[in-house]
């Protein structure tokens, strides 16, 4: 059974044009979906539909076989975790406190985190190598560090599906690699699934070269202009057609492993 099954999803904001139009895809355990597309194409809207924050009007979304309109907010948080784009918080919390918040769905209504929740949160911090930062203030972290902490918080939620909204925007080269390496490790070891909105085609090639079944959807004006495996979808033709730019895709053999990457050349 697929982790997530989106069927003919359409969404319209009040008084606005259609944002999402007839989108369908499925994702199995241990698979990755990279959603690419120009700004304003509807990536974030689609994510909010999957998270249950935009009420789906047309079409259906199933999480592990259950229609999301039948799932309570708490149950949803145990199935899907969400890593937003980097932002500061009005009130600062320590790193451990932030990660503990990921446990909220597992904590009953009037309760606070217990010892077990603290242990799980510490484990998750260790998994992303941030345990030394546990007492640091979250707002004082660098972009990459804070993204790793949000990653740990999503792990603490113990959900099978993780959704990332442009996780590497504003990150330096090193931390970009750090985030996608952790994603790779997680999919391979824990068999979770990831949906990721990104601006970088090479992310998809990276996951594919690591042996992860990687799907790519190129979104344009609310529809999937192209959808399929990374190597099929991310080609020069689609980039010209959807992004209106000329690109070149290169293949390199490195230690018997195919490395593929895309570089931009010019406008169409």
């Amino acid at each position: 059974m697929p982790i997530i099954d989106v069927r003919n999803l359409s969404f319209v904001y009040p008084n606005k044009n259609k944002i999402l139009n007839d989108i369908s895809f499925t994702l199995k355990k241990g698979e990755m979906l990279c959603v690419l597309g120009p700004n304003g194409c509807g990536k974030t809207t689609m994510i909010q539909c999957i998270l249950g924050m935009n009420k789906v009007e047309k079409g259906e979304i199933f999480i592990e076989g259950e229609n999301i309109s039948d799932i309570s907010m708490t149950e949803m948080a145990k199935k899907i975790s969400y890593i937003p784009q980097k932002q500061k918080h009005t009130f600062d919390y320590t790193v451990l406190e932030i990660v503990l918040m990921g446990r909220t769905a597992h904590i009953s209504m009037f309760d606070s985190p217990r010892k077990m929740d603290i242990e799980i949160s510490m484990d998750c911090l260790k998994k992303v190598g941030m345990e030394k930062f546990m007492n640091r203030n979250f707002n004082s972290l660098s972009g990459g560090e804070s993204q790793l902490v949000k990653f740990a918080r999503a792990l603490a939620q113990e959900a099978d599906l993780m959704i990332f909204d442009e996780p590497t925007s504003h990150l330096d080269f090193y931390h970009e690699l750090s985030i996608i390496k952790h994603m790779t490790k997680l999919i391979k070891e824990s068999k979770i699934s990831i949906v990721m909105a990104t601006h970088f085609p090479n992310h998809a090639f990276f996951f594919e070269s690591q042996g992860i079944p990687t799907n790519v959807a190129i979104m344009d004006k609310g529809i999937f202009g192209a959808y399929g495996s990374a190597c099929e979808t991310l080609n020069e033709k689609n980039m010209e057609h959807i992004f209106r730019m000329k690109t070149k895709v290169y293949d390199n053999l490195e230690n018997d492993r195919l490395l593929r990457y895309m570089i931009p050349l010019d406008f169409k």
Binding site: Q48, L51, G52, M53, M73, T74, E75, M76, A77, K78, I80, S81, Y82, P84, H89, T90, F91, Y93, E97, M101, G102, T104, A105, I107, M109, F110, D111, S112, P113, R153, Q157
Partner: peptide, 23 residues
């Protein structure tokens, strides 16, 4: 006093709080 843990989560904002299961 009873819901004080949830105040932490609420203070992160609407989207994040809901994604962590807080109504």
């Amino acid at each position: 006093m009873l819901v004080r843990w949830r105040i932490n989560v609420l203070s992160l904002g609407e989207t994040e709080a809901r994604s962590m299961g807080v109504n």
